[in-house]
Design a binder for these strands. Structure first.
Length: 829
RNA sequence: GCGAGAGUGGCGGAAUUGGCAGACGCACUGGACUUAGGAUCCAGCCCCUUAAAAUGGGGUGGGGGUUCAAGUCCCCCCUCUCGCACCA
């Protein structure tokens, strides 16, 4: 036997080789089919964790496989390098965020290289580099020019721990997505990107992505966009010229509106109650509600409260006076901030009506039961027919949606409309470590964008960090003060920075031309490579990053910078790595450090275990013993190659020219079946676990071959083909070991340059097949028949099998079902 | 509450189109080799019946159904995971 398998030595050797040969560097080549494979770029938090290893191992298999299939594969890596943790670390360790970040990048890059991932490293980008964030600023200005970036004062989500504003997408169950602190509301002037303008396009795009994206992600995005069809209706206010406009999706219930609810923030809430006996009560209520946290206030189980304004509106359908209330559950941000309340057909309104003793009026009647207005406690929300609804009485309620909508338009009372739940994306962050927003405020000229030729607005790095966590930017005079580009007078810079999600919204475009300096994107490069053919990452970005980057792609498309309208053709969301039933987390003490595993077993074993333990979209249960098993298998492969090396070294693989010796037909068939299985598993399903198990079976088959059976050159060539196939099929998953074995087998070039093996459909066919014989669906026997046997012959043989004959004695055969090449089912009476 | 996904041996998982349930691996048991074994090789390993077994019976969360045939399709229920959740 040859030397032992020592992964660490081999892996170093081949990593060096790949680097020196520049094997993973690519350029646009119109003669080759391109394939852009991308994994979500990491935040340089310190070191790689198992989730990264899983994400990138999956991606690397696909990248290497596609390369062997002849594609021009772009497989880049970079760093999502702006963000809070750098600032926290800076305060804690008395260092600078940049130093901390670049230190982490250096270390993590070494770790990724140690894993042997096939990245095109000379396309590396770090979003905190001015050469990158310059273009964030450029896009921001373009969007400002296009009216897509605007500034407004509004109530925004505030995280006290991060001391910054958060986008709606970054608030999870009322908590900050990053630190878990409870989010409160603040009134602030902020910059927004008009993602709402693309709501319809983002929604429509979901349908086109249905083939390549997980249904779950699309559903989440659709829900987030939240399109609803309804109507806006004007309710005249009694003793006033004004109207209150409401949004409803249930215009069929208009006749049942017995009161109206305004959001406390609605300007009319205060205005209407002025001078009424209820004025004080209303003002108190508004003050009380505004003190409450909005997240808690808008939770479903919060008590519904309200006050009467002392004023009335007219239901435009019934011309009846209905009281106007202010209610805590009405949201100013959704619809018009005013709701027509139909207690009989909306649970919230019913609860509210019962509590404050407002009348309930049934206008939709169920087809199969009766409702009692006086006593009902459950609102009827299903389909029914209209009652108490004037000319619409008797009409089906679904039909009435349209008919009443038409009526509203005819009468000029209202109009049918669509409404979206999605809000504009607030991108201002009161943080230091981010892209400076390229805006100047001038007392004379107002809001003035920084001229394009002055980009980038450099983030000053020569600063001290205070312990209280506030951004130091507003205190740096050399940054803060500048000349107004228009009037040249002293003016102030914006000191907020852009949300880091801006960086990740277009980084995949930049990989195609990372050093291009004339504009953000080199048209030729970006349109050669885009879209990303396969994107791989965690499900936690289902809404945030995946929605923002779709939005950016559409905007860039409209700017004329991109041909594509969607960034990612296919999306794979990989599951979490868990251990002992819980996600790996420091707090749970169940973290496995990839470094330890690599040190002990090598990168190949780490990769193999991760790929073998579970299909990618499912959670992966970490098992130390499983890693042992993966290592054992690689040793087995090693011994298989070196144990046969002397014999097979100078022999070419079997080439079909001379008939195959009978005793090796099975081996050859298994070899080709395995090629097919592994190819299909990688190509169509990303099921690497079953691909690996298939290779294991082939290895087992090779081990079962008796030495005496492979003595002549022809037999040896069949063995050579089998062994070579194992090495080739494993190479995307365990690249270092495969390179070493390939070299031993006489390969002169990197295994990644070798074409992926192909299989011969004829060889896969069995000569003899097993037919299962069932009686009444129960397995009773198996027979071997010649593969060429006809259905009739098989039936005949089956019925004449002694055991079957015995079992059938005295039973009448009603029919015989035959499934070609699989089974015979005999049905008796 | 709504939406999505899942539930298969001691464990991870396989069964791709309705056609032999448990591939492959881990753990475990026995044996061989051996100075040694946490190396390697061979064998066994869903449950029941059994001295042992079978081409005996049962079995894919539970109940019902469709079918010659169901882990797979349909209906009802249970459990778990994830997402959304006063959106008018």
């Amino acid at each position: 036997m040859e030397e032992r398998y020592i992964p660490q030595d081999i892996e170093k050797k081949w990593q060096k080789y790949w680097h020196e040969k520049k094997l993973f560097e690519v350029t646009e080549d119109p003669t080759k089919k391109k394939y852009y494979l991308l994994e979500m770029f990491p935040y340089p938090s310190g070191k790689i964790h198992m989730g990264h290893v899983r994400n990138y191992s999956i991606g690397d298999v696909v990248a290497r496989y596609k390369k062997m299939r002849g594609y021009n594969v772009l497989h880049p890596m970079g760093w999502d390098a702006f963000g809070m943790p750098a600032e926290n670390a800076a305060i804690q360790n008395k260092t600078h965020p940049a130093k901390w970040t670049f230190g982490n990048i250096d270390y993590m890059k070494k770790q990724l290289k140690r894993m042997g991932f096939s990245y095109n490293w000379n396309r590396e980008i770090a979003s905190c580099h001015p050469g990158y964030y310059k273009w964030n600023q450029w896009f921001f200005l373009k969007m400002y020019d296009m009216g897509l970036a605007y500034r407004k004062k509004s109530s925004v989500n505030w995280c006290e721990s991060c001391k910054t504003v958060l986008a709606n997408e970054q608030v999870e169950a009322g908590l900050c997505w990053r630190c878990g602190t409870e989010v409160t509301q603040k009134e602030l002037e902020q910059w927004f990107l008009k993602i709402t303008q693309y709501a319809e396009e983002l929604l429509k795009g979901c349908d086109d992505l249905a083939d390549g994206w997980p249904e779950k992600v699309l559903t989440m995005q659709r829900n987030w966009i939240g399109k609803s069809y309804g109507a806006e209706v004007d309710f005249p206010v009694v003793d006033s010229d004004g109207v209150i406009r409401v949004y409803t999706t249930r215009q069929d219930t208009l006749y049942g509106a017995t009161f109206m609810s305004l959001a406390p923030e609605h300007p009319l809430s205060k205005e209407l109650s002025e001078g009424t006996p209820q004025e004080k009560e209303v003002l108190n209520f508004i003050a009380e509600v505004s003190k409450e946290d909005k997240i808690i206030r808008s939770a479903e189980d919060t008590e519904k409260k309200g006050v009467f304004t002392g004023r009335y509106a007219i239901n435009p359908m019934t011309n009846q006076k209905i009281p106007i209330w202010v209610a805590n559950f009405v949201l100013m941000e959704y619809g018009t901030g005013a709701v027509m309340a139909v207690p009989a057909h909306d649970q919230r309104d019913l609860d509210f009506a019962r509590k404050y003793d407002v009348p309930v009026k049934v206008v939709i009647h169920p087809y199969e039961k009766a409702l009692d207005e006086e006593t009902m406690t459950e609102a009827f929300v299903e389909e029914g027919y209209l009652v108490n609804s004037g000319q619409f009485d008797g009409m089906n309620s679904v039909e009435a949606l349209d008919k009443i909508g038409e009526y509203l338009e005819e009468k000029g009372i209202g109009k049918r409309t669509v409404n979206y739940r999605i809000r504009d994306w607030g991108v201002s962050r009161q943080r230091y470590w981010g892209t400076p927003i390229p805006i100047i405020y001038c007392d004379e000229c107002g809001i003035v964008p920084v001229p394009y030729e002055q980009l980038p607005v450099i983030l000053p790095v020569d600063i001290e960090f205070e312990v209280d966590g506030r951004s130091p930017l507003p205190e740096i005079e050399s940054f803060l003060f500048t000349d107004c580009p228009i009037c040249k007078r002293r003016a102030k810079r914006e000191t907020d920075t852009l949300d880091t999600f801006v960086c990740s919204s277009w980084y995949f475009d930049r990989y195609t031309c990372p050093r291009y300096d004339e504009s953000p994107l080199d048209e030729k490069a970006v349109n050669y490579w885009m879209p990303v053919n396969q994107y791989i990452g965690g499900i936690e970005h289902a809404i945030l990053h995946l929605l923002y980057s779709r939005f950016f792609t559409m905007v860039l498309h409209d700017m004329g910078l991109l041909h594509v309208g969607e960034p990612y053709e296919n999306l794979l969301t990989q599951g979490m790595v868990i251990k002992d039933g819980a996600k790996m987390a420091k707090s749970k003490g169940n973290v496995v450090d990839p470094n330890d595993i690599i040190e002990q077993y090598g990168a190949d074993t780490t990769r193999l275990f991760i790929l073998f333990a579970s299909p990618p979209e499912r959670d992966l249960d970490w098992s130390d013993q499983g890693v042992d098993g993966a290592f054992r298998f690689l040793n087995r492969v090693w011994r298989m190659v070196f144990g046969n090396l002397e014999k097979i070294k100078d022999i070419s693989p079997y080439d079909d020219k001379i008939p195959i010796p009978d005793h090796l037909k099975n081996l050859r068939r298994k070899t080709h079946q395995t090629i097919k299985k592994v190819t299909d598993d990688i190509e169509e399903r990303f099921h690497f676990n079953t691909a690996i198990s298939a290779v294991m079976e082939l290895v087992n088959t090779i081990y079962q071959i008796k030495t005496d059976d492979v003595k002549d050159p022809l037999s040896i060539s069949v063995l050579r083909e089998a062994i070579e196939t194992v090495v080739l099929l494993l190479s995307p998953m365990v690249p270092h070991l495969s390179e070493e074995l390939w070299e031993a087998l006489g390969g002169s070039d990197s295994i990644i340059t070798v074409p992926w093996p192909s299989y011969n459909e004829k060889v896969i066919q069995e000569d003899e097949i097993v037919i299962v014989i069932q009686i009444n669906g129960k397995l009773r026997s198996r027979i071997n028949v010649d593969a060429s046997s006809s259905e009739e012959e098989i039936k005949e043989t089956a019925l004449n099998t002694p055991r079957i004959k015995e079992l059938l004695k005295g039973n009448e055969i009603k029919k015989v079902i035959s499934v070609p090449r699989k089974l015979i089912n005999i049905v008796t009476g």
